[in-house]
Write a protein that binds this DNA or RNA. Structure first.
Lengths: 335, 335
DNA sequence: CTGAAAGCGCTAACAG
DNA sequence: CTGTTAGCGCTTTCAG
């Protein structure tokens, strides 16, 4: 049986409101009783019950972070940014991994809301997870990270994917490549949308025809890149360069190319997106478009905190904050 | 203002216990009222308050998982195993990342307990995090993962590190290497302890002298491996082979060796520990000792669930479950 | 400085 | 089938 505030009150022979004051370092108790209470609390191995406190205070000191794939090194970097910024503000963050499973995303979202976390950061599986869009009000401060539904009414922070896609493609073009491919996770999703848009814009701008044979969509996992490029090469389809929707896809593509006995960038050049830590690994040395991962996480938290404050001040019309960060071109050895 | 069960009761004109029954699909309500209640709940955008429920039921349906570094691909694999097994049993899992910060570990641990999660899995920063060891009772079902304090009274699941270390070292020896180094994160920690012990046992068994110049301890991050090997080579210290405490250290070592213009395994052979996904990446192709990561996570959850059940049955003396899994030797190109 | 009392939102007997 | 009543553990007025 776990000790409660009442147990302490009883053994101390005082009221439990005094115990509460003593334990929370509020004024209104003599130093003497405070000491006494704290001593007893320790002896009883008392642990405050945050769920009871949460019930009355309507605050839990917790932020929820929902990510699609912690196995992709991109997301842990984001998580770190979130965590750091959150603990600066005195919040704990709970990370939920959906594994690209939309039903898990929904379930975690509901769960976090029911658990009354103070704010939620969601990096959605797909920009079509409308779960939230339909609600009239957001039941809790909320911000999208990265993959954002179009015309959302909620706050978001993302990297300018169109610009990133343009940058990547233009780089390829300026290096002299013409037969350029685009391999990515499923379309219809905002970032791809954006990255693909940027790709098309660049191709258009430089008057280069897009060959549909070179455009392929799979999922976001390494193996997908590997399979797609192998399948392409097997079918005799040779782009001169490919722009991959993210870095782990690019890694899969690199692997696929090499196993076919071809070399990078001589036979096929490659550029990725994200700049995950392994991209700079010498054996990989991947050219890519960098997203400011830590910054993204931190900004998301800042938005949440701000919403929390204005909310507490009785502010009603919380306008959504929209942050679009600039990507950077990182040139390494693969293009 | 968020709608509560009372609001529903009021607008439906019934008692709120009936509402509770209807919403939770308990028997004791007519199908008619159930429908009515559910309809109203939807209109009011009612979201159950899990903290209130948790307070009365003394259960939160949540497991806590504390990991030292989600940036090391080893841990996400564990997290996946935990998650899968947990959702099978109907639990949500909250992941906390300590970033090798002991004070964060303590803080998260306390937090999870205060939040009354139903069970905690802790992969400690160091086997010296005694935080829990001192308590008379564990306030919540608890299991160590991987890095376990010696002679703990709590449950744990880990890989047989001594055996793993022995396996790695024996492999090196049998391949003909004699000047063998060991580079790892800080000692005094159980797994290293174990891995180092295995290393020493193998060296001893084959009557090979250990050269202290080849034994180095840094931290567990990639850069540490890189720095150490570069420093060694720079100082003219050339082992023929090195056993790295984990795979990302090994990757750092690989990088360091190559940047010094040496080649692997011709100049220096390398073997790691963990078998992270990137180890099998062709450009890395790291020989290593595999830990059954997913299995570890799942086993940890199983232990928790079992404790929960015996606890609920009024069982008092929960004996700790101790699981030691076998590592596997994975031979690739680096030794 | 201290105690009594109310109540957060919900579940769970217990009557009817 | 339905309502009434406690009460989970804690904070927070409001008196004293």
């Amino acid at each position: 049986m776990k000790a409660t505030i009442k147990d302490i009150a009883r053994t101390a022979g005082i009221s439990y409101s005094s115990v509460s004051r003593a334990l929370n370092d509020l004024k209104g108790v003599s130093e003497q009783t405070r000491q006494k209470v704290k001593k007893i609390a320790e002896e009883l191995e008392y642990t405050p019950n945050a769920v009871a406190r949460g019930l009355v205070q309507k605050q839990t000191g917790t932020l929820g972070l929902i990510l699609p794939d912690i196995t992709n090194p991109f997301y842990p970097e984001i998580a770190r940014g979130v965590e750091e910024q959150a603990s600066l503000a005195g919040f704990n963050t709970f990370l939920c991994n959906t594994n690209y499973d939309l039903s898990k995303e929904e379930s975690y979202l509901r769960n976090l809301i029911e658990k009354r976390v103070d704010g939620i950061i969601l990096a959605p599986v797909s920009s079509h997870s409308n779960l939230f869009e339909q609600r009239k009000h957001m039941p809790v401060p909320f911000v999208y990270l990265g993959n954002t539904p179009e015309r959302t009414k909620y706050s978001f922070v993302l990297t300018d994917n169109v610009r990133g896609g343009y940058l990547a493609t233009r780089t390829l073009i300026e290096k002299g490549y013409r037969r350029i491919g685009f391999i990515s996770g499923k379309d219809e999703e905002s970032p791809v949308g954006g990255r693909f848009t940027g790709f098309k814009e660049a191709m258009d701008r430089y008057d280069i025809d897009i060959n549909d044979d070179y455009i392929r969509f799979g999922n976001w996992r390494l193996k997908s890149g590997y399979d797609i490029i192998q399948q392409m090469i097997g079918a005799g389809i040779y782009p001169e360069a490919v722009f991959a929707g993210n870095d782990i896809l690019a890694m899969g593509i690199l692997q696929g190319i090499k196993e076919k006995g071809l070399s990078v960038p001589e036979d096929i050049a490659v550029i990725g997106f994200d700049d995950i830590p392994y991209a700079s690994w010498p054996a990989i040395n991947l050219s890519t478009i960098r997203q400011p991962k830590s910054r993204m996480g931190k900004s998301a938290v800042e938005i949440l905190i701000e919403q929390l404050q204005t909310e507490n001040r009785g502010g009603t019309m919380l306008k959504a904050t929209k942050i679009i960060l600039d990507p950077d071109l990182i040139l390494r050895g693969t293009c």
